[in-house]
Each structure stands twice: as C-alpha cells, then as structure tokens.
Design a binder for these strands. Structure first.
Length: 470
DNA sequence: TCAACTCGCACCTTTGAACAGG
DNA sequence: ACCTGTTCAAAGGTGCGAGTTG
C-alpha cells in the first residue's frame, strides 16, 4: 500500500527573471519548488488495474475515473499559493482494439480532441492546504463528446492516455504564466479510454472496488439484476478475484499478472521488488517508470524563440533533445520497445487554452486546451512512427542529475501581447464556460503557443503549457 | 455482419436539507 | 442561538444489456 513517490529532480527555479509573487508570500525564492514531492494514493489499486490494463469509461455526459486521481503533496511552501491541474496526454499515436484477450493496434490515432486541463476546485490554495490532506480529483470527468460544454476532459475511445499532474506556484490564474510548472506523472495511472469495458478483468476490478458498483458484486444481496444475467461474468466466473479486495497488490491470480499488452512489447512482469511501476505495466517498455522530469527553462528567450524552441525530451539513455517545430514537423518518437508492432511513444503535446462562453452555467473545472500540435495524433500520423526510431519519450531514463517523476517547466507565453491569437484575435468568442476560478479572460491572456492545427474549429484555443511537450 | 456506441434501467453511495436533542 | 447527530429523500455514480449506428 505504499504510495508511489515522485520527486523533483532538481531545483526548479527557472533561470530567468520572474515577476515577484503578487502576494509577496514567496519572496525571492517564491518559485523555488525543488523540494516539492508528490505521491499517488491508492497506488496498490492503480497497480492492480495497471497490471490488467486499466480502462476508463468515457460517456457523452462525462464519467468519473475509477480509481480516481488522488495525490499527496509535501515540500510546498506553506504560505505560498499553488494551483493544481490535471490533463491527459496520449500514450501513443495509435487507436487500439480489444481482440479476445489482448489489446492490439488498430490504426493511427484520431486527431486530437481539444485538450483540456482540469483545475482542482481548491485552486489556488496555500501549500499548507494542499499538504494537510490528500488532494483528490474525484470530480474529474472524462467524455468522448468533443462538443462537451461542461468542461470535462475530452478523450477518444480506444485510445490510451495517462494523467499528468501539474503544480504551479501562483497566487491566481493570471500569474500562472509567470510561474514554474512542476509536472508529475505516474505510469500506473495510464489507461485506455473506452465506451464499454473490453477486458472483463477490468470490469471485475471496478465492481469489486468501486462502491457505486456494489450492486454488481457477486456476494451482494442484489439478486434481481443478476437474475437477468444468464451467467454472471460468463468467462470469468471461475476467476474469483476476492483476494483483490483484501490485497489487490498481492493478488495471486496469475491471470492478473499477465499483461494484455505483452504482445506489444511490454516487459514481462516480475514478481517482487519495490514499486517500480513499469515492472507490472503493460506499457512498461514505453514509459519511464520513474517519470521523466524535464526542466525547461526559457532562459530569457523571447516569446518567438520559445515558440520554436527545442523541446528537451529524455530518452532511454539520456536526454535526447528533439525539435518540435510545429505541426507536421516534429519527429515522432516511436517505441523503443521491441515488439513488432512498434508502438511509438507519444510526442509532445502542447495544449491550448480554450475560449470560454460566458453564458455557460455549469461550473467547469477544466481548462480548454487547444489542439495538440505536437501530440501523437496531430503529428504522429504525418511522421509515421514506423521503423525510424526516435527515442521513446515514455521510455526514457533520467538524466543522472534527475530524479524521476517530475517535469518542471516554466509556464511561458511565447506570444507577445501583440501577437495574433488566432483568427479571432485575443477576444475570441468563448466556446466553453470558464473553468473554476478561472477569470473570464484568462484564456486569452495565457497564451503560450502558436502552433496551428488542422482543425480550424479549434482556432480559438490557445495553449496553456508552452513546454508540456514531452 | 460486427465492433463501437448510446440509452434506460436497477442498484448503490453520496449529499444536503430538515429535524431533534443537548 | 448554536452545535451536533440522525433521518430521509434527491441527486448522481455504477455496470448491464438491449438497441442503434456506421
């Protein structure tokens, strides 16, 4: 039940001038976040799902995740304010399908839906607040409705994603642009978005562990529904998973150790050993368990430089910078993993900030991000992962000086204020309601990226994270 | 034909209002 | 008046299975 730990690898203080914190709480070191530490709660549960191949249901109206993202934070400055965000990045550039008992590649990924970032409703809050108890993203919802107006995170079914947690020291969303982002990922949280569960083992895990699905448990008192089932869990009725309830992490059912992605080159699971995520992971060969940390610093580069600047991307052996020069030009890091399917890693993805309609009533918690010019979907297909092997972004080793698990980068606005913000300029009509705590015009102020996307409809959206490409 | 998707259902937990008691 | 605990109904989160779609 040990949480997965991740720590920043280095001092995150950006090597450039940063406006002082508005609140003055931070002082000169207000963006010194090198001691921040994030751990994933319920890691055993995540691991149990991950071993089987986590699936998350997505629906038009939005579906919560289960397990949901819950983290513990430490090392924050108690009186400095922080903002917590979550977004989803593609794991690869493929669409997948479930074939009998395993996942297979089923073609190229579909074009990226608008990338949204979920803003924790407590944001901004002082470090003491974030550290006093676990931070839950329970209400984060996933949807496959690209026209969703509730602020849910939009994903494609049958595509694989993993959540990224962003921590920003900022007094408010306006100052986010000047702040240093620390991005954490936990390999065990990767999942396949589906509209209906494919792997019955996942269904069983969900039923066994999600309290809302209690009515489907075999041992439950519910007889009515099961009466409708000619045979509950037809193919797995013999695979009693009760042990998972008690100790999912040590579930002994060998079937649960077998990765549905093994055929795709994932490393074989090994028993024992500490929490090295990918040890059990179907995606182990691609993702660096230790989660790459990247420290990107604008280094005083001007906005346009940032726009076209290199993206440092860790590779299995070292940092291998590759360029992300915009739509259609990024190299596509493909799988370093070995299977013939050649699953590539995913490419950097730079989300845009969405424009938001002011009339919307629901209180969204997701920032609308624009197309992901560097993501696997927009770039990958053109780059045809194929044989040409770029270092897999997810299968990277940390630089010696780095600790795994965190990627830090300053939020930076490549656009100067006079730069065009798309066809509608800076005040494009809002498409989505403003996110929680998000000032109405934030979306037009926090402009960080200028890649164009083929989808003109998304032009009103601008990236929030200029350097979330990785 | 079939995989992917949608929808309504029963069952369940969570939430919050209303109320009672200290 | 205030606080705490209990009750209960409504809201909303689940997977299932039938129907729909492309």
């Amino acid at each position: 039940d040990r949480p997965l730990d991740m720590q920043p690898i280095r001092d995150l203080k950006p090597n450039f001038s940063v406006p002082p914190s508005a609140s003055g709480t931070g002082g000169p070191d207000s963006y010194h976040q090198g001691n921040a530490r994030m751990t994933l709660e319920d890691s055993h549960l995540w691991k149990a799902f991950h071993e089987v191949g986590t699936e998350m249901i997505i629906t038009k109206q939005g579906r919560r995740m289960f397990p949901h993202c819950k983290i513990n934070l430490s090392g924050l400055l108690p009186y400095a304010k922080y903002i917590m965000l979550v977004d989803m990045v593609p794991v690869d550039a493929f669409r997948h399908k479930w074939n009998k008992d395993k996942w297979e590649v089923a073609g190229k990924a579909e074009p990226q839906p608008p990338c949204r970032t979920y803003l924790h409703p407590d944001s901004p809050a002082p470090g003491s607040h974030w550290m006093k108890q676990s931070v839950s993203f329970l209400k984060l919802k996933l949807t496959n409705n690209t026209l969703d107006q509730h602020g849910h995170i939009i994903l494609h079914s049958m595509h694989r994603y993993h959540p990224r947690f962003h921590m920003v020291q900022a007094d408010d969303l306006f100052s986010v642009r000047w702040s240093v982002f620390q991005t954490f990922t936990f390999p065990d949280t990767a999942f396949t978005a589906v509209t209906a569960y494919q792997n019955t083992q996942i269904t069983k895990l969900k039923i066994d562990h999600n309290p809302f699905a209690k009515g489907f448990r075999d041992e439950g008192t519910n007889t009515k529904r099961r009466a409708h089932r000619s045979q509950p869990y037809p193919e797995k009725v013999g695979k009693k998973m009760n042990s998972m309830d008690k100790d999912p992490e040590h579930g002994s059912n060998p079937d649960f150790r077998r990765s549905p992605y093994e055929h795709m080159g994932a490393p074989k699971s090994e028993e024992g050993g500490p929490v090295k995520e990918e040890r059990y992971s179907p995606w182990g060969s691609e993702q660096d368990p230790s989660l790459s940390i990247r420290t990107d610093s604008p280094l005083g580069a001007d906005a346009r430089d940032m726009y076209n600047s290199e993206q440092l991307v860790p590779t299995p052996t070292s940092y291998h910078p590759y360029r992300c020069h915009g739509y259609g030009k990024s190299p596509s890091p493909s799988s370093s993993g070995g299977s013939g399917s050649g699953r590539p890693g995913y490419e950097p993805r730079i989300p845009d900030v969405a424009t938001v309609p002011e009339h919307e009533t629901p209180k969204p918690h997701a920032l609308e991000m624009g197309p992901s010019p560097c993501g696997p979907s927009p770039c990958g297909p053109q780059l045809a992962p194929g044989p040409q092997e770029y270092p897999g972004v997810l299968n990277m080793a940390m630089p010696p000086a780095s600790k795994p698990g965190v990627l830090s980068h300053p939020l930076y606005a490549p656009y100067s204020t006079e730069q065009a913000l798309g066809p509608w300029g800076g005040a494009a009509p809002s498409q989505y309601p403003p996110p929680h705590h998000l000032p109405a015009d934030y979306s037009t102020q926090a402009v960080h990226h200028g890649y164009h996307h083929g989808n003109v409809a998304d032009w009103s959206q601008y990236p929030l994270f200029s350097y979330s490409c990785w």
